[in-house]
Amino acid sequence: MNPMSHLTLTQRFHAFANPARFMALSDKLIAPFGFVTALLIGAGLWYALFNSPADYQQGESVRIMYVHVPSAWLGMMGYMIMAGASLVALVFRHPLADVCAKSAAPIGAAFCFLALVTGSLWGKPMWGTWWEWDARLTSMLILLFLYLGYIALWSTIEEPQRAGRAAAILALVGSINVPIVHYSVVWWNTLHQPASVFRADGPTIASSMLVPLLLMALGFTLFFMTLLMVRMRAEILRRRVRALQLALSEV
């Protein structure tokens, strides 16, 4: 019989999200996740660099897309994970949600940064400029600043519970920027091109380019998940260290 079957749904949720259970589960998942990540990125790179066509307008520079677009997606997904976990942390006061939000921030920030840098490297040869204050680029830069503000807030407030609450509120307020990033290319006249994969009428990109793009995006997503689990483990240990230090100082 399932040992959890006598519990209510909420109790089950809490039992599942229990840090000790998370430690046991993540311990089993990290290695296989890492392995699949390596396979997907390996295959993605093979297609992206050797086995996909040059663009008829952009030539070989189109290959920047295979690192730029997944980075941008993950920069936004990371923020949604952070804001979602922050909401759960605020409403249910669940410590694991708090750990998740805090651990997701640096990974999301790194991908957001990569989207900006690789976009700049793509913009120079294609648009003739490294940077333009257009709606997509500007909202993406604001996303990076929101991440940095969130990380800074965690490190400036000493007491984890207060830091967590303040950071969660910042994450939630800032989440308004995520749809702005996504729709910026629709709402404003931007230099940046509109979406060509996540569209209501289906992808408009050639399948020879969609395959490497999706492989890389899937690989990056799994990388994100794997690293998130490792960071969460480190964070749980850090909190145990802190609790032990407090307990020992009172002995």
Binding site: A110, V117, L121, K124
Partner: peptide, 19 residues
Amino acid sequence: MGGYAGYVWSAYGVTAIVI
């Protein structure tokens, strides 16, 4: 890279370094 070597390899390089 069809004349775009600096841009393409920089983009892949910075991605690898950050990861």
